[in-house]
Design a protein around this nucleic acid. Structure first.
Length: 857
RNA sequence: GGGCGGGUGGUGAAAUGGCAGACACGGGGGACUUAAAAUCCCCUGGGGGCAACCCUGUGAGGGUUCGAAUCCCUCCCCGCCUACCA
């Protein structure tokens, strides 16, 4: 298909547009319609052109619509997309909806209406709002994760994971959230609560689907070196994966025919192990407990299981534990040491069992002190009567490794353990497998069937998608099964080909599933035969620039990297990493007004009186604070209002002018007004009040100083877009407008170049003025202007003159003056002469074109 | 406790070894107007001086350098992430 070349089929309407006043309400819809009808931003893979893939983290279309935080990232990527197009790149810039999720399901439970209905409504709202901002998406590529034509392929990718042994079902302690009625992944739980809502989470034994992300732990760490991401995000992923090197060691239980393995990062301290601890959930715990201690241990285990993850995790909590009565045999010296159970040892990490070396581990030290356990120093250098010593030193009291420094001792003892068949050097990760099933309706059904013999098979690709059945009631069943269990005919059915009775899985996939691969579908969104074609994937991938919030650092960004690597191993994608360059925009905050009782007020309910802010009606004082936008704080700014009152270009410009993209910044009404004034000044530069082209714009003559500033502006804006410093790019354009406004005559050519650099930021006004300058086609594919470096060189430059590093004067000299000339000019300055009086110059420092500094005595 | 950011005017911020505060917001003054809004012009870090000018200033203290917001050390404060991971 051809890209419809702008201008030919749909001509912009006139109507009330051709007036002399800047009127975004008429020009913005006009150009939005033009872009949409002409498919100005439609893209096709074209191997003859260099590609650029610039992607936003697609939104969950909530019922509240957009707030001004969303368009910050969208505007940034749009500027880059438009800039790259003008620089000859074939740009892929798509948008879609991550539309599975709990709010729509809750709505369905309440109303009985299918969640697809409210989802469609919300997507329509989001699309309308996003389109009103003039973002240059290729709308023919719009995708929706809840569309069966989309989730067919999500299910297909799951079957790939399943067939590669990376999806398995297991009965394990999982994070159960009673408020949500579903289990959650580790990544979704923090401090024993669901990260989104703060609802408490408890441990429960359940049979669940897991994805073997741990099999990719090493590569997920290693390949972070390949991508251009913020260090903070890389660090978060590294910490989450939590690689640690150490050794396994086998401890026999004295007098019993059993043993357990522990993991330690300090095998060098093995001689200092004075007790062992099994987690309360450890399978060996009750079997080894002696009769006299059994009641106590059982009580402890029970108490631990009841304790919420929240208080179990609390670091300040004093350590607790009980002795089992059993002893373990230290593999290095045969010494028998007591086995305890304590909840400071976590069942999920390592083997759920540790050797305790109180002399060299703070936690063990605290525990040993509390329970009067032995403390043996094996690394010298500390004072173990006062505290655990965790630093480096020489080994003592350790026959096999005495005198060695810690690193060598670790190596030697690990080798010794391996030799004896009692352990070996190993690497352990903090990362756990990904709990992948949810007890919900509004998610992708698992493409799996259980046969009568209990075996599980993937649904073949030709039978995909497994479509969600409609339900009358979207609640879980009375006996606690997921909502899909209500669709009995859907769950239990007969295979038409074999006549076998089959049973479907009633869990659904988590919301993360659809976003794990959407960037691939964008490459080839309408492909009915495949999730994507090889040609499209290898042309567009990887994503060159990915912008979104930092809250996805270890969720979406880790999960999608994992899927991508599986697809890479399956030969289905050509790059090891999906997102080459990542950038996190900072949150947009807003002022909120709260009285002493904690009640919030809307901005229109308060007013400033002197230094204080008062509630208009009551006159009581309120506190002004800068906080995250939220409905409950009455401080949400709706982009619709801003677009209606000041226009999309003002909104776009302000989103970027507020400050550096990665920083948190407060929204202010005055700030938007400020950039709106800037746009009006631009308009007035080109158009007179009656609506004619401004007479200051001349074809062949203009203020040369303005031309120079223009070229400087082009240079800086170009550089600033590339480094994502949009705020300074805009201030450069403001400088140009200030200079051009003061000039009597400006050259048309300069003004056109200015419109081209303005266009990525404020495309509507730029298109409108471009048209009024006589152009028939959109400027979206005009060549990005060059600048002439020779025009950046000033004839005369101001050179600061310092004396002992203090600024005393500036002198004007011809550009290119050599050191002697600079010194001579500096010495001619009266102010400098006055300062030099009676002093001796001991050194003259000259930085050509920069400064002169006299060091005097 | 650990990791990563950050601290510059009344406010958002520029400047990453060379004129601190560009560009805006807010504030003050003026022009236009019957008036207001809008718009335009001037001023706006602090202190001193009639003025030319002078002093001072980037969280605190020290250091390196001819020269430091910028580099190094010590400390304080704020934000985010993380936290008994053996």
């Amino acid at each position: 298909m051809m890209i419809q070349k702008p201008g030919d089929s749909v001509s912009p309407t006139t109507g009330n547009v051709r007036t002399g006043l800047y009127d975004p309400q008429s020009i913005e819809p006009k150009w939005q319609e033009y872009w949409l009808k002409n498919k100005t931003f439609k893209t096709e893979a074209d191997p003859s052109k260099p590609k650029y893939y610039v992607l936003d983290m697609f939104p969950y279309p909530s019922g509240d619509g957009l707030h001004v935080g969303h368009p910050e990232g969208y505007t940034a990527t749009d500027v880059v997309a438009r800039f790259k197009r003008m620089n000859g790149f074939n740009v892929l810039h798509p948008m879609g909806w991550d539309a599975f999720g709990l709010p729509a399901e809750r709505h369905a439970v309440r109303t009985g209406e299918h969640p697809a209905v409210i989802t469609r409504k919300n997507c329509d709202t989001f699309r309308r709002q996003i389109q009103s901002l003039g973002l240059s998406y290729d709308w023919d590529r719009e995708i929706n994760t809840t569309d069966p034509d989309y989730y067919k392929w999500t299910q297909w990718i799951f079957t790939i994971l399943f067939e590669r042994g990376l999806a398995y079902q297991t009965e394990a302690p999982v994070n159960w959230c009673p408020a949500l009625g579903t289990v959650l992944a580790n990544e979704e739980v923090k401090d024993g609560c669901y990260v989104e809502t703060g609802d408490p989470v408890e441990k429960r034994m359940m049979k669940q689907w897991m994805l073997r992300i741990t099999a990719y732990a090493e590569r997920l760490i290693q390949d972070l070196d390949r991508v251009d991401w913020p260090e903070s995000i890389k660090a978060m992923q590294r910490e989450w994966i939590g690689r640690s090197e150490g050794a396994d060691a086998l401890f026999k239980v004295a007098g019993k025919n059993c043993q357990f393995t522990i993991f330690t990062t300090r095998p060098d301290t093995l001689y200092g192990a004075t007790y062992c601890v099994l987690a309360p959930e450890h399978p060996l715990l009750l079997p080894i407990t002696t009769l006299d201690r059994l009641a106590e241990v059982q009580a402890y285990v029970e108490a631990a299981s009841r304790r919420s993850a929240q208080d179990r995790m609390a670091a300040e909590r004093e350590k607790t534990g009980v002795f089992t009565g059993a002893y373990a045999v230290n593999p290095v010296n045969g010494k028998e040491i007591p086995i305890w159970t304590a909840d400071y040892v976590l069942a999920e990490y390592g083997y759920g069992a540790i050797m305790a070396v109180p002399a060299h581990d703070e936690r063990d030290y605290e525990f040993a002190r509390k329970f009067g356990l032995e403390i043996i120093e094996v690394v010298s250098g500390g004072d173990i009567s006062r505290a655990a010593f965790t630093g480096d030193g020489l080994l003592v009291n350790s026959p096999l490794i005495d005198g060695l420094p810690v690193p060598e001792a670790k190596k030697k003892i690990s080798a010794w353990l391996e030799n004896q068949g009692l352990g070996k050097a190993t690497v352990t990760y903090r990362l756990r497998d990904w709990l992948f099933s949810r007890q919900r309706y509004w998610g992708e059904p698992f493409p799996l069937v259980t046969l009568e013999d209990g075996s599980i098979q993937a649904v073949p690709i030709e039978d995909l998608p497994v479509v969600l059945p409609p339900l009358e009631d979207y609640r879980p069943t009375a006996d606690g099964q997921p909502p899909l269990a209500r669709a009995q005919e859907w769950v239990n059915f007969t295979d038409p080909r074999t006549g076998n009775a089959l049973k479907r899985e009633t869990n659904t996939m988590p919301q993360w599933a659809g976003s794990c691969w959407y960037y691939l579908r964008f490459c080839d969104p309408q492909n009915r035969k495949q999730a994507w074609s090889k040609e499209a994937e290898s042309y567009w991938m990887p994503v060159d620039l990915y912008i979104g919030g930092a809250e996805h650092a270890v969720l979406h960004l880790l999960y999608s990297r994992f899927w991508h690597k599986v697809l890479f191993d399956a030969g289905l994608v050509s790059t090891p990493e999906p997102f080459q360059r990542l950038f996190n925009q900072g949150m947009i905050l807003a002022h909120s007004y709260q009285d002493s009782s904690g009640k919030y007020y809307y901005p229109h309910q308060v007013e400033k009186s002197g230094e204080e802010w008062l509630v208009k009606e009551t006159g009581s004082t309120v506190r002004v604070q800068v906080e995250k936008m939220s409905k409950s704080r009455y401080n949400v700014v709706n982009p619709d209002t801003v677009v209606r009152e000041l226009g999309a270009d003002s909104l776009r410009l302000y989103e970027l002018f507020m400050g550096p993209l990665d920083r948190e910044k407060p929204w202010t009404e005055e700030g938007v007004q400020g950039v709106h004034r800037f746009l009006r000044r631009i308009w007035a530069l080109f158009v007179t009040e009656p609506g004619d082209l401004h007479p200051r714009i001349q074809n062949d003559s203009g203020d040369h100083a303005v031309t120079r500033i223009l070229h400087r502006t082009v240079k800086h804006v170009t550089r600033d877009i590339e480094s994502l410093d949009f705020n300074t790019a805009i201030s450069r354009m403001m400088e140009f407008v200030n200079a051009a406004t003061k000039a009597d005559r400006v050259q048309k050519d300069d003004m056109e170049r200015f419109l081209l650099v303005l266009a990525p930021f404020a495309p509507h006004i730029a298109e409108e003025l471009w048209q009024r300058l006589g152009h028939k086609e959109t400027l979206a594919y005009e060549k990005w202007p060059d600048y002439d470096p020779t025009l950046l060189i000033e004839d005369l430059i101001n050179i600061p003159v310092q004396i002992n590093g203090k600024l005393r004067d500036t002198v004007q000299v011809p550009n290119g003056s050599d050191s002697e000339a600079l010194i001579a000019a500096a010495k001619e300055s009266e102010k400098v002469q006055r300062q030099l009086e009676g002093k001796t110059i001991v050194k003259e420092i000259v930085v050509p074109a920069k400064l002169v500094n006299f060091v005097v005595r």
